[in-house]
Amino acid sequence: MSQVLSVTPSSQAESLISIRALSYRYYASSRYVLNNVNLEIQKGEVVVIAGKSGSGKSTLLRAINGLIPHQHSGDYSGKVIVDGLEVLSAKMSELATKVGYIFQNPENQIFMFSVERDIAFGLENLSFKTPDIREKVDWALNTLGIRDLALRAPHELSDGQKQRVAIAGSIIMGQKILIFDEPTSLLDPYTASNVIRIIKNLHDDLGITILIVEHRLDLVSQIANRIIVLDEGKIVFDGEPRQVMYSSNLSVHGVTEPTIIRTTKLLDPGATGPGKSYPLTTHELAHELRKQVPRIGVFQKGSHEFGTNR
């Protein structure tokens, strides 16, 4: 039933994140949340992690940023290496310079009186000199396009703006890896696609490696090079978005398949081979359908009036 389509050889020496035989259960729990997980993530990847609630997604992320084992006690076996640091023996403060974590609800990490103070907080904490901080804060404000918000109080901002402030506070630390925990679930679709675009820019312009936990794949699958599906603490799928989405019924694993994928699978029940190229967006499916009904006026090319392409 499960099929692991590995896109990366498991023993590459220079992986940015290397997880080997990781098993973990929380203190006083009988169940292993992570069950012999092996995973290599290379620099510059954009990886979506999906799966039902309780599948181990958040636990896996915490094992990468060090909250596990440093803040949660439990049974831990295996090895996690992040940019050359072994998580088990590294200090949390060292790990914090490598990995940033953007919460679903940015309220949880925004608390200063002004946006720029909030963004500067991490560096102030590390005793950077004031002119250096100023320069970096300006850079972060510009990178996220929130210059005009610098002196505003964070609690006055919209959810999408808060999300960007939280990201700015993270990139200013020079972190190479950013983890997003359901970054769009509280946002309206328009704001959500803006946040997704910003995440893509962080990757394209700054070379930041991105890990995103998401239930809904329609938005994120277009910026990801890889989707990992977890179920009961095991990796059940790992591959390129098209491969993973057309390999199996992901809803069995708690992942909501985009409507377009479900429709394509119904139209072509044989759509299971990873080698075939299947549509990810409405535009791609419309294109396929028009190819199949050539020169006949059933599917005339309509205007694409909503201007969106999911």
């Binding site: 309206d188 679709p189 328009y190 704001t191 696609s193 329609d218 985009p258 409507t259 377009i260 429709t263 409405t282 535009h283 499916l285 419309a286 359908l289 028009r290 599917f299 005339q300 090319k301 309509g302 205007s303 694409h304 009036e305 909503f306 201007g307 969106t308 392409n309 999911r310």
Partner: peptide, 22 residues
């Protein structure tokens, strides 16, 4: 109104609109 409200159309509406089937 859809664009004013910053709402995206359902995928199937986008698909059939693009196919010219209204």
């Amino acid at each position: 109104s859809f664009s004013h409200a910053n709402i995206l159309a359902p995928q199937l509406v986008e698909l059939f609109t693009e196919l010219g089937d209204l």
